[in-house]
Simulated assay, not measured.
Amino acid sequence: MTDDDGLILSTAHEHLDRRSRRRLLGLTALRLTLSSVALLTVYYLLPIGALHGLSTILFFIVGCAVFFVVLGWEIRTIVVADYPRLRAVEAVAVAFLLLIVVFSSVYFAMSDADAGAFTEPLTRSDGLYFTITVLSTVGFGDIAPSTDASRLVTSVQMLLDLALLGVVVRLIVGAVRQGVRRQRNAG
């Protein structure tokens, strides 16, 4: 079976028996779960409340830089992976969660430094919730940015979310295609 580019849809896993496929899917699910637990644990344990002013801005810049470095690494691993489609699923999940953790951390730090930065003071869970409502474009309105700084950071998140949904997913799909081509040419 092929897609529009003539790439084989079922490549490296075609030779696997049912048990091996399940094991491969299970390992992928396990890595996704461990990555999620690790990122959320770091989020809840980081001393974010100690960030104020310039340290919050620096944390935000470093967090965004880490996001882009991890994203680049993830795209590279897709291209060389034995199972590029499964690796792409992991990459998308890690990218989304990392972006959520970065923005949740910044929102929590901003709220901790200035209780009026949002319509209500944010706990870590509130920061996570607010980040997810912005990412999903739901925006219930129960929490909203109320200072220029918090509005600017929220606007940056909205723009990065659009980029993640558009450009990043396109990059990952391209990396999958490249990985599948590499496998086809190797075999």
Rank of each mutant, 00 (worst) to 15 (best):
V70S: 08
I143Y: 00
L32A: 13
I132Y: 06
Q178I: 03
E74P: 00
G26K: 10
S36C: 05
V62F: 07
G116P: 00
T33Q: 09
Q183G: 06
L97G: 07
C64H: 07
G179E: 11
M158H: 04
F68H: 14
H13I: 08
R184G: 11
V180C: 02
V102E: 03
I132M: 14
V180F: 02
S55D: 10
L164P: 00
L24I: 03
V89C: 04
R87W: 01
L58R: 01
F103H: 15
G26E: 14
Y44Q: 10
H52K: 14
G179L: 01
S10C: 11
S125E: 13
W73E: 06
L71S: 11
G53I: 11
R170A: 14
S55N: 06
L54W: 12
V106Q: 08
V94G: 03
A144K: 09
L9C: 13
E14A: 14
L159R: 07
F140H: 10
I48D: 03
M110N: 07
L164T: 12
L71Q: 10
L51M: 12
L51V: 07
F96L: 11
V92S: 12
T131Y: 00
A186G: 08
R87F: 00
F59K: 03
R181W: 10
D3T: 06
V153W: 02
G63K: 04
T56L: 04
D112I: 02
S111H: 07
D161Q: 11
L54T: 09
L135C: 11
T56M: 08
M110A: 05
I100T: 15
G141A: 06
V138Q: 10
I8R: 14
F118L: 02
H13E: 12
V156E: 07
T33K: 05
T119A: 14
S104Y: 00
I8H: 08
R151D: 09
Y44H: 07
L160K: 06
G53L: 06
D17V: 01
F96D: 13
T131Q: 08
L97T: 09
L32Y: 01
L39Q: 13
A65I: 12
L99P: 00
F68S: 10
T11C: 08
L9S: 09
I100Y: 01
L40M: 14
E90T: 09
M158N: 08
